[in-house]
């Protein structure tokens, strides 16, 4: 069965981009516009990996990350941060990778493949 990736980003164009990119490469996808919605989708879809934007209007991706890292069920779920922030600003430590927007799709796919196959 294809691995599933949850995309959390407030920008619909970025979501569409990532969906197409992942689906073209044999992954299933699901998506959410912010961290709150992201948690619901997470429970419903049980993805294998998450890509997370940080600057989102209702609450920042960092908040979602903190919630996730305290949740025994999901704390080992791999996260790739894709954001416009320089990584040095972040208190997020345990992530697979941090990609800056605009990101290189080949690099992203390479990281995803290495992480979940």
């Amino acid at each position: 069965m294809a691995k599933k990736i949850l995309i959390i980003d407030d920008d619909p164009y970025t979501v569409k981009y990532l969906e197409t990119l992942f689906q073209d490469n044999g992954y299933d996808t699901c998506s959410a516009a912010d961290g709150v919605e992201g948690y619901d989708v997470l429970r419903a879809e049980q993805p294998d990996l998450i890509t997370l934007d940080l600057e989102m209007p209702q609450e920042w991706g960092t908040r979602f990350y903190r919630k996730l890292s305290k949740d025994p069920e999901y704390k080992n779920l791999p996260i790739i941060v894709i954001s416009g922030m320089p990584s040095s600003h972040l208190a997020i430590k345990k992530i697979v990778a941090h990609l800056s927007k605009p990101f290189d799709p080949k690099e992203l796919l390479g990281i995803v493949r290495n992480t979940i196959g």
Partner: peptide
């Protein structure tokens, strides 16, 4: 601009 460039990349990829 970073966000918009990402969107642009996305459009071209699609």
């Amino acid at each position: 601009l970073k966000g918009l460039l990402t969107g642009l990349d996305g459009g071209m990829y699609m």
